[in-house]
Simulated scan of single mutants.
Amino acid sequence: MSVPLAPRSAPLFVVFNRASGRGDRDELGPAVEAACRAAGRVCELLPVEEPGRLADTAREAVRRASEAGGVVVAAGGDGTINCVAQAVLGSGCAFGVLPRGTFNYFARTHGIPAELDGALRVLLEERAVPVQVGFLNDRVFLVNASLGLYSQSLEDREVWKRQFGRSRVIAIGAVLATILRGHRSLGLTIESHGPPRKVRTPTVFVGNNALQMEQVGLPEAQAIDQGALAGVMLKPVGRWGLLKLLVRGAMGRLAEADQIVNFAFRRLTVRDRRFGARRVKVATDGEVLWMRLPLRFEVSPHRLMLIRPPGLAEERRQAQASLAEAESGR
């Protein structure tokens, strides 16, 4: 489906979550207004004081942008961006991002700078291009979705953040605590290519972010650029085995681990093989919630019209090809 591109003069409707991301909530609004004023652009700020109001505010931004031929902008971390994208997808509105989170995987993989000035330049100067979106049942995910151990580590990370603040060191510490506390394997039936498979695994992880896959050394990054999702499962492994996998991932060598099962797909169904339909804890872009099985991961038929620099997937493929050639020549 072709979506008209918003002109560079289109008004901006900026949703920003004051409860998320960095401690610059009072500076963001004035900075956005100043940049828009200098560019001759109209902008309207829609701050969110309570996290429970984020979805309603995002829908209101989409309504106003639809009426005005404008752009909906999400300012915050990956969770905030996910929530606003959920409202924008399929609306016909262009989507902009001002990353204010800890990791900012979605923005980084699409070439949007973490610095506010750089992100504003992209927002005000670039055009919208279609980007891939994942679905977990009826929920959008832009970076990843998961169940099992990875989801639990994200929930623990939020507890640590509330106690100790937001940083990458805190996030890594929470993951270590989750691993050392112990875990159980899930008995699942996986349906994708071919007949259903019965598996036991501590976690199912589905990625829609090439940068995240590249950082841990998984080859499915290229598959994401070509329209697929990246599936990752762990074979049953103990605590020390998980710690070794964590180290491999930090070194960008996860694909070398025998305990990793990784594959690309466009549609994947996960069922509980023992208890039938039941609720499980899942995570989408860092936000933890409960869903009823079966879980269906798939590439959305709709694309998100994201304002970003063009040609990034091709640049990434060329970089991967150059790296592979260099390694083969050693």
Score class of each variant (00 low, 15 high):
139 R>N: 04
157 R>E: 06
97 V>E: 09
201 T>M: 06
20 S>L: 13
114 A>H: 02
79 G>Y: 13
283 A>G: 04
236 P>N: 11
246 L>F: 12
206 V>G: 01
51 P>C: 13
25 R>M: 15
153 S>W: 07
286 G>H: 03
253 R>K: 13
27 E>M: 14
117 D>H: 05
172 I>Y: 03
237 V>P: 05
244 K>Y: 11
172 I>G: 04
101 G>I: 11
240 W>C: 03
237 V>H: 11
297 F>M: 00
160 W>H: 15
57 T>P: 02
157 R>Y: 09
153 S>V: 09
237 V>E: 12
168 R>I: 10
136 L>W: 09
20 S>W: 13
67 E>D: 10
93 C>L: 04
225 D>N: 10
21 G>P: 13
262 N>C: 09
21 G>H: 12
305 M>F: 00
176 L>D: 06
182 G>A: 13
242 L>H: 11
90 G>L: 04
142 L>H: 07
216 V>M: 09
263 F>E: 03
307 I>H: 01
98 L>F: 06
40 G>T: 14
257 A>H: 04
43 C>I: 13
106 F>V: 02
78 D>I: 08
209 N>E: 04
288 V>D: 00
194 G>S: 08
96 G>V: 06
159 V>W: 00
272 D>E: 10
194 G>F: 10
141 F>P: 00
288 V>T: 05
215 Q>T: 15
6 A>I: 08
235 K>C: 12
183 H>M: 08
167 S>P: 14
199 V>K: 01
32 V>G: 02
191 E>I: 06
167 S>R: 13
9 S>I: 10
39 A>G: 08
325 E>Y: 04
79 G>M: 09
325 E>S: 14
168 R>D: 14
85 A>N: 06
172 I>E: 09
100 R>V: 00
287 E>A: 03
86 Q>M: 05
96 G>M: 07
159 V>I: 09
83 C>K: 05
87 A>G: 06
68 A>H: 09
222 Q>T: 13
44 E>G: 00
147 L>G: 04
100 R>I: 01
17 N>Q: 13
244 K>S: 14
123 L>P: 09
29 G>M: 15
162 R>S: 14
304 L>P: 01
192 S>Q: 12
40 G>L: 12
41 R>T: 14
208 N>E: 08
86 Q>E: 15
155 E>F: 11
191 E>L: 07
299 V>C: 00
310 P>M: 02
123 L>N: 04
54 L>V: 14
156 D>H: 13
140 V>E: 04
193 H>Y: 07
204 V>H: 06
232 V>T: 15
134 G>E: 04
130 P>W: 03
27 E>Y: 11
18 R>N: 10
307 I>Y: 01
69 G>E: 11
36 C>G: 12
91 S>H: 08
81 I>C: 06
238 G>F: 03
33 E>G: 03
278 R>L: 05
68 A>N: 08
98 L>N: 07
